[in-house]
Simulated scan of single mutants.
Amino acid sequence: MVAVSSANMMSTPATKLGAIVGGQTSCKAPEIEAFDKHLPSDVSIVSCHSLHGPGVDPKGQPLVLIKHRASDAAFTFVEDVLSCLGSKHVYLTREQHDRITADTQAVTHAAFLSMGAAWCANKQFPWESPRYIGGIENVKMNVTLRIYSNKWHVYAGLAIMNPDAQKQIQQYAESVTELFKLMLGGQRDELSARVHAAGEAVFGGSRDREDLLLKDEVLDQFSLGELPEKRLKNNHLSLLAMVDCWWKLGIVPYDHMICSTPLFRMWLGITQYLFRNPSLLAECIDTAIDDNTFRADDLEFTFAARDWSSRVSLGHFEGYREKFERIQSYFEPRFPEATRVGNEMIRTILEKTT
């Protein structure tokens, strides 16, 4: 099999007769379009995408295979070659892949990127504050640092080149903004009604009987700071907005579990944990209305979500890179420890959710 970058097609007329060509990009629309335009008709096109980062063991993780233009024999050959990864093969079309990738990755990344931007704007290292230690907060911190320790283009390409991703990132920014306005206005009844409507749409019905993907006793193992004696209350705007976004877009995240990344499983796990715990959810709403502790953080988070959405909508790669690398440099001293703890957390959580 020959792997050809969709960004460099100058040599494609010289592709070996009867070759099989594929790509590993996270957005298949431009890749397949380039292959169709530049590759000779005798060349088979079988694309793929591993739904995990480079630091995750591929064994058992989903690997999407797209039989775009190929014989059964050529497709079987590609499957045999890729079987050495030990991944779980998932068969999709290009359109299905891009929609599901947007559903499971784009908004997840936007949420964590916005958290990092907010902490950087407030000159915070969250693991040094008792406000962000323990349970759910460990996922927020570890995954945010994990994302910022990677290359900017991994996330920019997925967000900017996938039209479905752009729509979802825009809706997430709108959900964050609208919920934050309800909090600022002290509109308890309106906030409660909206949060519970979103929760019912995403986690209600038969899904209410789903086992919890994550529990505090698992998450508490992976703190970057010292555990406080008493957990501080948080309104979890980022999580409330995620479920609101899924509700507004008609997305049922459980439908995509077969194609879910480790980060998405953790994100879904902590949102499910929050919304399936009535007392904790009520505490979030009360905190959002009555407690100003997180107001500065929430303000910067709202600014960040809107800013990331604007840069993505404009297709501004350099603008995306500038913001990403500026925040990356702020957190860089903690990347080695965060990567170690994050890898251990992911490994432990995957064992309990797969």
Rank of each mutant, 00 (worst) to 15 (best):
S279C: 02
D42M: 05
A241R: 00
A159I: 05
T339E: 13
L314V: 08
A102S: 14
T348P: 00
D255F: 01
R326M: 10
N277E: 15
V81M: 10
Y320D: 04
A19Q: 00
R265D: 00
E318T: 12
P278D: 08
C48A: 15
S87Y: 00
H49S: 13
E283C: 04
C245L: 11
R306C: 07
D98H: 08
D255P: 03
S329Y: 08
G60R: 01
N138V: 02
V21H: 05
A241I: 02
A29P: 00
S149Q: 09
K28E: 05
E190V: 12
V4Y: 03
P333I: 07
M257V: 13
S313T: 13
V46Q: 09
V176T: 06
D216R: 10
E200F: 05
L213V: 08
W308R: 03
L239W: 06
L158W: 00
K230F: 07
V312Y: 04
M257C: 06
L65R: 06
S206R: 11
N343W: 07
S11Y: 12
T348I: 02
L82I: 11
M141A: 07
V56E: 08
G185A: 12
C48K: 11
P40C: 05
V2D: 15
F301A: 07
P126C: 12
L263E: 12
L224G: 06
A29V: 07
R194E: 15
G23W: 03
W247R: 15
R146T: 14
L219G: 03
D36G: 01
I258Y: 12
R146V: 02
E79P: 14
V46L: 06
L281W: 04
C259S: 12
V154H: 05
N343H: 12
L92A: 06
S129I: 00
T15S: 09
L249Y: 02
K123T: 10
S310G: 03
H49G: 07
C259P: 03
L249R: 11
W246T: 05
G225D: 09
R347Y: 08
V81I: 13
S260P: 04
A296C: 10
G134Q: 04
L219M: 14
A296Q: 13
S149Y: 02
L51W: 02
K67L: 02
S149F: 01
T293Q: 11
A241E: 03
A117R: 13
A73T: 09
S44G: 06
E351V: 01
P54N: 00
Y155R: 09
L158S: 14
A70T: 01
M115C: 15
S83M: 04
A197N: 07
H52I: 01
F112C: 05
I136G: 05
S26Y: 08
I66K: 10
F203Y: 14
S310V: 05
V139D: 01
A3R: 15
A106N: 07
T15R: 10
T271L: 11
Y273G: 05
G157T: 13
T339C: 03
L240T: 02
S175T: 07
E31N: 06
E344L: 13
C259A: 10
R326K: 14
S44T: 06
K352A: 09
L239F: 12
F294D: 12
S6V: 06
E300L: 14
G225Q: 12
T287K: 07
